[in-house]
Design a protein around this nucleic acid. Structure first.
Lengths: 244, 244
DNA sequence: ACGCATTTGTTCGTATGTATT
DNA sequence: TAATACATACGAACAAATGCG
């Protein structure tokens, strides 16, 4: 009941509950890895039936914002989970099993965002950004050159040292240290020829074909918070994708 | 430890219903574009509650096998729908809107499947396959060179003429003419250098970087039914992907 | 080792709302 | 307008998994 009839646009009850829950995630009432209140508690809090809460949670779970575990509760998704990492890790070795590889950070500095970066991240012209550059190697061979741009205001205090010291996925560091959780990303993929600088860093001939992957990552509310440009040597790795 | 160590593979009711419904799709009781029986009819047929049928349909709908339409019914998904085509069409122009482009078929012949093709399509060594080669052009410029392999036994009577005459997506032809519906695919993507033959067909310099997309498409029951090797000129197009 | 409480998962039933024909 | 079909919402009961005492 309590119709709340002043609604500007109708939406089903469970959608409204979903919105309220998303807000709790966004505002940090519930943190990555935490258990959220039980369905019965949430039903009481929102004054709806358990089934309505269930439907809201169902959708948040299929959107990968929450993870249900029978007998234990419902948890806020985190990049600490292997399954979550896998969703954002597309580069696979032709032989052997996917692994993190060795990381080498070659740059991490704060500066004004170039125009194209600012546009993608919805920053004002002149806003500061943090640029991170790194090389990923597998079995000692360099394979990936990443050029990562982050809004400085969200990542205060990010340094090359913190990145180097951290064991685990970068997105895990972002969510635990800076409270920024990546939930979705869009990628544009092309084939390009290696320029001289890239060729040197990846130890291959200038002009070699490389996979160019431009990724724009979004947090809650579809707000872009990372622009990542990667160049992959696909001689013994490939980018896997699933169409369904 | 007490008992039931080797359970008889219990599965929830709605999963069993889902399996039965998948079988109806697979065996052709329900055809692409058709409406399936209403939830109430299905509930009567399977002797379960409407809610259980709903849950089975929900999952089949999220797997894109069925499409629900309020007030009208539930329909078997078809590649005639624009949304379905979009899921398998990843190449986007830098400017302008995605379109089919002009197709030119340069080859369509039946032959014994090479070993690697046979392996991917789970064919016996020596089984026949149909090879289709085509070029896709946009605004008159060739952009895509596709090399497509199909099990001959499933595509009897497929000719270059039929392909050329057909207006609409190739997968639409496959499902309407041959009863083979693609529901899922896995892709391996790399950057490669154009060889002489490819360079000529795509009107670019030998050695130019090209996107190599190897797609294995599956029908019901995860049975592989198409191996497609595409080479994309990504000078003014890109491969879009969504991570979520 | 056992049982109990908690939490999500499954199944049923009923009623009402919304979209389509 | 009426009939049909899917969508939403509520309630209830039991099953299965987990964790604790």
């Amino acid at each position: 009941m309590t119709a709340e009839t002043s609604s500007p646009a109708f939406s089903p009850l469970y959608q409204q509950i979903k919105t309220l829950m998303t807000r709790s995630l966004q505002l940090g009432e519930w943190h990555p890895g935490d258990a959220i209140p039980s369905e019965i508690e949430l039903a009481a809090r929102f004054k709806v039936s358990q089934g309505t809460v269930r439907k809201a949670i169902d959708e948040l779970a299929t959107e990968n914002l929450l993870v249900r575990r029978q007998g234990k509760g419902t948890f806020v998704a985190t990049h600490a989970e292997e399954k979550v990492q896998f969703r954002f890790l597309r580069l696979m070795p032709d032989e052997g099993v996917a692994g993190g590889g060795e990381r080498r950070f070659i740059d991490c500095r704060r500066q004004r965002a170039p125009a194209d970066i600012a546009r993608a991240l919805l920053l004002q012209a002149g806003d500061a950004a943090i640029q991170v550059r790194r090389v990923l190697s597998f079995s000692g061979a360099p394979v990936v050159l990443d050029d990562i741009w982050l809004p400085a205001v969200l990542f205060k205090g990010l340094t090359a040292e913190k990145l180097s010291d951290y064991r685990g996925p970068m997105y895990r560091l972002f969510e635990s240290e800076f409270g920024v959780r990546m939930i979705r990303a869009e990628e544009k993929i092309r084939a390009v020829a290696a320029d001289a600088a890239t060729a040197e860093l990846l130890a291959l001939a200038e002009g070699s074909p490389l996979l160019s992957v431009e990724r724009l990552s979004m947090t809650y509310g579809d707000k872009p918070v990372e622009l990542r440009r990667g160049l992959y040597n696909t001689a013994s790795h490939y980018y896997r994708n699933e169409l369904s």
